Amino acid sequence: MVRNTAKCVLFVAASATLGLTACSGSDSGTKSSGATGTHSPSGSASAGASALTASVRGALKALDTADRDVPGGQSFDLEKETGTGGSPVWDIKTASNGKDQYNLSVSEDGAKVVNKRQDMTPDDDVAKLKDVRIPAQEAVKLAAGHRQGEDLKSIEIDRNSTGATVWQVSTVKPGAQNGTETILDARSGKLLGDKAAD
């Protein structure tokens, strides 16, 4: 009886230790700049669907709405602006099948397209999408996990000084004037660094 009780205590202690290790590992994976957070996108997303700010949730929904509204849609640029009626909207640039470009205005909550037009002179950013493995939505989630509690201002695709295609995600603390730009590798999702946003 004593031997069984001792085994039970050891099992519970081992389970508790493993549980704590797993918890701390998954938490650090969300915030780390390593590959841990990037290889389990659902983990980083679920780490905080409820913890995401309203602007991040609205932007994610707006990106999905834009992608669905454009044939073969892949959004590559989003910025919060004031619409024609004075209401906040998300201005989104979306590529169609990797070549044509559409410029959309989507409601702040991300639910509906307010305005849409084809851009007859597509940005050179459309060509950068061929290097992308991490879509804009996932880049927003990764940046939001890294900059928890901050509001989203914009996301855009670019190339860094080494020629790698990157996502630049700008966030700002509620009530603050100056934000932070988080740079993520567009192929792996790896965090490359933060800098003061322009």
Rank of each mutant, 00 (worst) to 15 (best):
E81P: 05
D124A: 05
L78D: 08
P122L: 05
T53I: 05
D109W: 02
S87R: 11
G58V: 12
K93M: 08
K99R: 15
S107N: 05
A59N: 07
T82H: 03
F76Y: 14
H39R: 10
K99V: 13
N115F: 10
A111N: 07
G83A: 09
P71E: 13
P88F: 06
P122T: 03
G110E: 00
V126L: 11
W90T: 03
H39P: 15
T36G: 13
Q118E: 07
D123F: 00
G43C: 13
A66V: 04
A59V: 07
G85W: 00
I92C: 09
P122C: 06
D124Q: 03
S42E: 12
K112F: 09
A66I: 04
Q74L: 15
K93E: 10
P122G: 10
V114K: 00
A45R: 13
V106E: 07
D91I: 11
L52S: 12
V56K: 13
T82A: 04
G72L: 00
K112H: 07
V106A: 05
A62D: 04
G58L: 14
L52N: 15
V56Y: 03
A45G: 04
K130S: 15
G86R: 01
D124F: 02
L78Y: 06
T36E: 12
Q118G: 13
A66T: 01
V113R: 00
S42C: 10
G48H: 15
P122R: 01
N103W: 08
V114T: 07
V132G: 04
T36M: 11
G58M: 09
D67L: 06
G48T: 12
D100N: 15
S40P: 12
V113E: 04
D119R: 00
K93H: 13
A95K: 03
G83C: 03
Q118V: 01
T53S: 15
K128E: 09
S75F: 02
H39M: 13
D125E: 13
V106F: 06
S40D: 11
H39F: 12
S50C: 07
L52C: 04
K112P: 00
S75Q: 02
G37P: 03
G72N: 12
L129P: 01
T65E: 10
V89C: 04
S46K: 11
D125V: 00
D69F: 06
E81R: 15
V89T: 01
